[in-house]
Nucleic acid binder design. Structure first.
Length: 277
DNA sequence: AACCAGGGTGATG
DNA sequence: CATCACCATGGT
């Protein structure tokens, strides 16, 4: 039995990184902030406690887990350079300076698919609650902790609608169930989707009931790290209509997903962004 | 107490 | 192709 406290702490020097920005910008739903500013959560079945003191990141894990969490937090990518490119655009410049610590997390594809199925026509606090209940009730136990993994597809595939009913997914319940069954039966191979060209991957995801253009883009961006994927929700739609009447700048399209995340958070959370609702 | 939310589906012009 | 009612639930 492994004691989580015995895993120790690893310190890392980081830049263009802020936990509040990263966990608060609406890309993920399982991280919780404690009063001391640290966060606890689970990703890819691994629990973590993480905090930040300025440009020092403190990970509650062992040295052998460092590469994994470095991948999850996208630490090997130069966001300084990305932000420099995006800031050529005047609106993006403001969005970036509003939350300069945003990074795109590399989430588990199945969790991203499930989470953004749940997200449709829904609000973030409620999405978080639903995902939490899903993990609490059906997630696998993680040895040595009280934390639970995101429920694997076969686990959900074995459930009925009435099992999921009390969790409050509403009309999205059959969407999650049929996606789980398709993955569990091998009719949708997420590992294969990861290798496909963007358009093909998008088309493959959109074969699922409940997955339209927006959810597909979210899965591509947050689950597969496709930074050119560009989810357009109600907020981004407003941003595009007001600030980009000619369309989003094509020369930034290869970073569209990252740009979209700065813009989404800015539009949603910055009172001074003078966006008309 | 209404209105809205990281939309998608299916039916109808 | 564009529009539209409808979907279940609860946060604000």
């Amino acid at each position: 039995m492994l004691d989580i406290e015995s895993k120790g702490t690893v310190c890392l020097h980081i830049s263009d990184f802020n936990l509040d920005d990263i966990f608060g910008c609406g890309q993920c739903f399982r991280w919780r902030r404690k009063p001391d500013g640290s966060y606890t959560g689970v990703a890819h079945g691994r629990p973590l406690s993480v905090s930040q003191e300025g440009d020092t990141l403190l990970l509650g894990c062992g040295e052998d887990d460092l590469a994994f969490w470095g991948g999850y937090f996208d630490l090997r990518r130069d966001y300084g350079k990305i932000k420099e490119s995006l800031s050529q655009d005047t609106v993006l410049k403001k969005a970036v300076s509003f939350a300069p610590g945003i990074r795109i997390l590399r989430q588990e594809p199945w969790e991203a698919l499930c989470s953004f199925l749940v997200s449709q026509n829904n609000n973030i606090p409620r999405i978080r609650g639903i995902i939490e209940r899903l993990c609490c009730v059906f997630g696998g136990e993680i040895e040595g902790t009280a934390a639970r993994a995101f429920p694997a597809a076969p686990r959900l595939a074995a459930l009925s609608e009435s099992d999921l009913k009390p969790l409050g997914l509403g009309y999205r319940t059959p969407y999650v169930l049929s996606a789980a069954r398709k993955v569990a039966e091998g009719k949708l191979d997420l590992a294969a989707v990861a290798e496909m060209p963007l358009a093909q991957a998008r088309a493959e995801l959109m074969k699922l009931r409940g997955v339209g253009p927006k959810v597909a883009e979210c899965v591509l961006l947050f689950g597969f790290g496709r930074l050119e994927a560009f989810p357009v929700d109600i907020w981004v739609k407003r941003v595009l209509a007001q600030f980009y009447p000619e369309g989003f700048p094509p020369e930034l399209a290869h970073l569209g997903g990252v740009a979209q995340q700065y813009l989404f958070h800015y539009a949603r959370c910055c009172p001074a962004c003078d966006l008309v609702h």
